[in-house]
Write a protein that binds this DNA or RNA. Structure first.
Length: 502
RNA sequence: GGGCCAUUAGCUCAGUUGGCUAGAGCACCUGACUUUUAAUCAGGGUGUCCCAGGUUCGAGUCCUGGAUGGCUCACCA
């Protein structure tokens, strides 16, 4: 502010300053004072000997020894010529005790001027107070970064969910359980990787920008490449690229990465979400059930030490084996309708209308079956359940069953009523695949903009020959919600999509 | 997109049937206090009551429209 040459910047800064509220202005004044006394409010690298959690957990090892640590000041209690404060680093909070006698006039003045939120480095000896709290008696204090804005309230934390998502860094600073959730998220993803790598799967990365959005029924985001003057889609699934790799001779591959779907937002849907997909040559959907069961139970064991979990008050037992229930049987069990008798779209449609469900003219037998399933069966599938043998109309990439060609070797896994995984014996007949894509194109023409596009390049790959293959997709965010007992997908995504603030 | 709900100080929240100059705690400022811990004690209120209209002598409060968010339904994993 004293720089005469920077006239414009100085002036606008001063105008801005007037609009800041008092709390921010006070901190800016302190910043100015610090600079004037020759203290750099935004310091350099600080070498510390310990992290807070180490000191708390192993107090006996460090008692009366000199330690140093760095972190953010989260609370401050003054006592005249001495004071306590809490410093929070990446591991925990530890108390520090600063006395005028130990620090000297100059440093103690700096300490007194510190605000909650400031980032400091301290060096001193470790002791326990009368009340038994592990504390660093500070000998030397270094300001590493001045904080110019007040933190949210110390006792209630930050509750406004809008602010929590938009300013996740504040959420992480003041709500410790949020940090825990994301640490667990990282552990879960690592456990998945370990599980698969140990079983010989190769992690690969396939394109996120697709000329044709395929591998799922969903509306894509569109974008544009300028140099090629080409429209592209953000991927809705990596499936077709991973199967090209199976054609190419990678027998076991997986990818954990983002998919993008241009659809509604809810507590279980974010436009970008993390998907695990894996493919294993010479395997089928039964093998995929074994892998799914093993993977989820083992991840829970790895991260929590047990496979019994509680989600929002609901006990869920992830120990294998899980029920494997053909869709036709599931529908019979929960709706009373027998689709082995209702063998065409008309009779099935009439029966379903009696249940109060709406049927479109374009719906085939399989679409109608699926509607009944979603409406009557899904909400009942709380404990892990594999629903097997999906109708061919809604499974354009799955191999038909040899004995029941209206069905496919496909399953979905349901836990807590949610679809958690989707898998099938992959369709490797290029002629059948072309036929399926054509049916999807018909659906597109009749207004279904989630139906599959024709992918000639993928069919060409199949024409070179793809071994019989089992493929599996698991919604990683939902798995994490379940395992961390989080009610909203936004609680397990660091920066969920939000409308920008005006 | 539909329905319901919310929006008041930096944060967490009160605010009655429409009625004085809009409140509390934390945070912040001044002073006291050298083992406190939601430190304490004395003093200080820092505000576009989400926005724009309207009704009224008078609106944080009632009405209309809008913004943002939450829940929920629809679509989807």
């Amino acid at each position: 502010m004293t720089n005469k040459k920077g006239f414009d910047r100085t002036e606008s800064a001063e105008i801005n300053e007037k609009t800041y509220n008092e709390l921010i202005q006070v901190r800016r004044e302190k910043l100015k004072d610090l600079k004037q006394t020759g203290v750099n409010p935004f310091g350099q690298r600080f070498e510390f000997t310990h992290r807070a959690k180490q000191l708390l957990d192993n107090y006996e090892d460090y008692e009366d020894k000199e330690v140093s640590l760095a972190g953010r000041m989260m609370a401050k209690r003054g006592h005249g010529k001495a004071g306590f404060a809490n410093v929070q680093d990446g591991t925990a909070q530890v108390q520090i005790y600063s006395r005028l006698n130990d620090l000297g006039e100059e440093q103690y003045e700096i300490y007194k001027g510190l605000d909650i939120g400031d980032i400091v480095g301290v060096r001193g000896t470790l002791f326990k107070t009368r009340m038994g709290e592990v504390t660093v008696a500070v000998k030397e204090l270094t300001l590493l970064a001045k904080s110019l804005r007040p933190l949210p309230e110390k006792w209630h934390g930050l509750k406004d969910v809008d602010l929590r998502y938009r300013q996740r860094y504040l959420d992480l600073i003041v709500n410790p359980e949020v940090k825990d959730t994301f640490v667990i998220r990282s552990k879960i993803v690592r456990a998945i990787r370990n599980f698969l790598v140990h079983r010989g799967f190769l992690e690969v990365e396939t394109p996120m920008m697709h000329p044709i959005a395929g591998g799922a029924a969903a509306r894509p985001f569109t974008t544009h490449h300028n140099a090629l003057d080409m429209d592209l889609f953000l991927r809705i699934a990596p499936e077709l690229y991973l199967k090209r790799l199976i054609v190419g001779g990678f027998d076991k591959v997986f990818e954990i990465n983002r998919n993008f779907r241009n659809e509604g937002i809810s507590t279980r849907h974010n436009p970008e979400f993390t998907m695990l997909e894996l493919y294993q040559a010479y395997a089928d959907y039964n093998d995929m059930m074994d892998i799914t069961e093993g993977l989820i139970a083992s991840v829970a064991e790895d991260v929590f030490g047990e496979a019994n979990i509680n989600y929002q008050g609901q006990e869920i037992n992830l120990n294998s084996p899980w029920e494997r229930l053909p869709m036709l049987e599931a529908v019979k069990r929960y709706s009373g309708l027998d689709f082995e008798v209702l063998t065409n779209a008309d009779t099935a449609g009439n029966a379903v209308k009696k249940l109060g469900l709406e049927v479109e003219k374009s719906d085939g037998w399989g679409d109608i079956l699926n509607k009944v399933f979603e409406e009557k069966v899904e909400p009942n599938l709380i404990q892990p359940t594999f629903i097997t043998d999906y109708p061919v109309e809604i499974s354009p990439l799955a191999k038909k069953k040899e004995d029941q060609p209206q069905l496919t070797y496909r399953f979905e896994l349901f836990i807590n009523g949610w679809e958690m995984a989707n898998a099938f014996s992959e369709l490797n007949d290029p002629l059948d695949q072309r036929e399926r894509f054509s049916r999807q194109l018909d659906k597109r023409k009749s207004g279904d903009d989630e139906a599959h596009m024709m992918d000639e390049d993928y069919i060409t790959a199949l024409e070179y020959g793809m071994p019989p293959t089992g493929g599996l997709g698991i919604g990683v965010d939902r798995l994490i919600m379940l395992l961390t007992d989080s009610p909203s997908i936004r609680d397990v995504i660091l920066f969920p999509l939000m409308r920008p603030r005006v």
